[in-house]
Design a protein around this nucleic acid. Structure first.
Lengths: 155, 155
DNA sequence: TTTTCTGCAAATTTTTTGCACTGAG
DNA sequence: CTCAGTGCAAAAAATTTGCAGAAAA
C-alpha cells in the first residue's frame, strides 16, 4: 500500500475514535494535506486545492476541518509572523513538531526533522519547572540559494 | 539615570539615525513598551495603554509605530498561533531574540533569556548551509502553577 | 518651509458564526 | 431516524490604506 493511503487510514481511525463523522469534505481535505506535505499552506490555499476535487466545498468547512485536525494533533497550526495561520501535517511517528528555516529574503521555508531540542527541553523542565509538551522553533536567515545569488551579484 | 530612560534614549537615537521623526505618539508608544516589558501585548492592548497618556492617538498610528520599531529591530513581532500578532521588546544587548514558555492551560507566557540554541544553530548552518540571523522558539506545556493546581485537585 | 506623520473612516484580509438543509452512522 | 456536519452569507476581528490637515526638522 502507498504510504499516503496508510497515513490516511490512520487519520480516519483517529477521527472515528474521537467520535467525528467521516465526510467526503473531510476526506478530501486530509488527502490534500497528505499530498502536499511540507507546503505550509494557509486555509485559503488548502481550500483552493480541495475545491479542484470537491468543487462544492465551502471555505468555512475547510476552517472547521483544520480546527478539528489541530485538536486531534494531526496537524499543527503555525504562524510565521506574516499575519495568517498555516497548517503543517505532523509527521508520522514524530514525537514532536519539526522545525523550520525561514529565508527572510525569498520567503522559502525548509523543514528540519531532527529533534535537536531534547537537551534544551531538559534544561527548561528542571530550571523553570515547566512540563514541556511540544515546541515551535523557526530560524530566520538566508537560505543557500539566496546566498549563492548574492555572491553572483557581487562578482 | 533610570534604566528605562537610558533605553529610551538609545531607541530615540536609532529612530533619528534611520531618519524617522520623533513624535509624541511614537515616544508614548515606546514608553509603554519599555514599562510593560515582558507583557507580550497585542497592538490593541498597546493602543489602550498609550491612550491613557495620549488620548488622541489612533490605532493606525500604533500599528505604524510598531511596524517601524520592528523594522529597526527594536521590537520583535511574534505570534503564539492564537491569530493575532504580539510585540516583544528586544532586550538591551541581547544578540538574539529570547524564548517563551507558553502554558496551554492558563495561557501564561514566561520568558527564557538564556540563548541555549548556539550549538543547534551551528548544526543548522553546516548541515543546511543556512545562514542563521535570528530565531523564534516557544515551548508549549504546563507551567509550575498549573501543575501544582492539578495536584491539589487530585488529592 | 518641506516632508513626514497623524487621525479618521473606509477598505481589506482572515477567521468565525447563525441557520436551514443534508447526509453519515 | 437523528444529530453532527455543511454551505452560504453575514459578522467579527485584525490590520492596512487614502487622504486632508498637523507638526517635526
Amino acid at each position: 500500500m502507498k504510504p499516503i493511503e496508510t497515513s490516511l487510514l490512520k487519520i480516519k481511525e483517529s477521527l472515528h475514535d474521537a467520535g467525528y463523522k467521516l465526510t467526503s469534505q473531510r476526506e478530501a481535505t486530509m488527502k490534500v494535506l497528505l499530498e502536499k506535505e511540507s507546503e505550509h499552506m494557509s486555509a485559503e490555499e488548502i481550500y483552493l486545492l480541495v475545491k479542484k476535487v470537491n468543487p462544492d466545498i465551502g471555505l468555512a468547512t475547510v476552517y472547521r476541518t483544520l480546527e478539528m485536525l489541530t485538536e486531534l494533533e494531526i496537524v499543527n497550526k503555525v504562524s510565521f509572523d506574516d499575519g495568517l495561520a498555516r497548517y503543517d501535517l505532523k509527521k508520522d511517528g514524530a514525537k514532536h513538531f519539526h522545525h523550520h528555516l525561514l529565508c527572510t529574503q525569498c520567503g522559502d521555508i525548509e523543514e528540519v526533522h531532527e529533534d535537536l531540542l531534547e537537551e534544551i527541553e531538559a534544561i527548561v523542565e528542571s530550571r523553570f519547572q515547566f512540563l514541556v509538551k511540544d515546541h515551535r522553533l523557526t530560524f530566520h536567515g538566508i537560505c543557500k540559494k539566496c546566498q549563492d545569488q548574492e555572491k553572483k551579484g557581487i562578482q
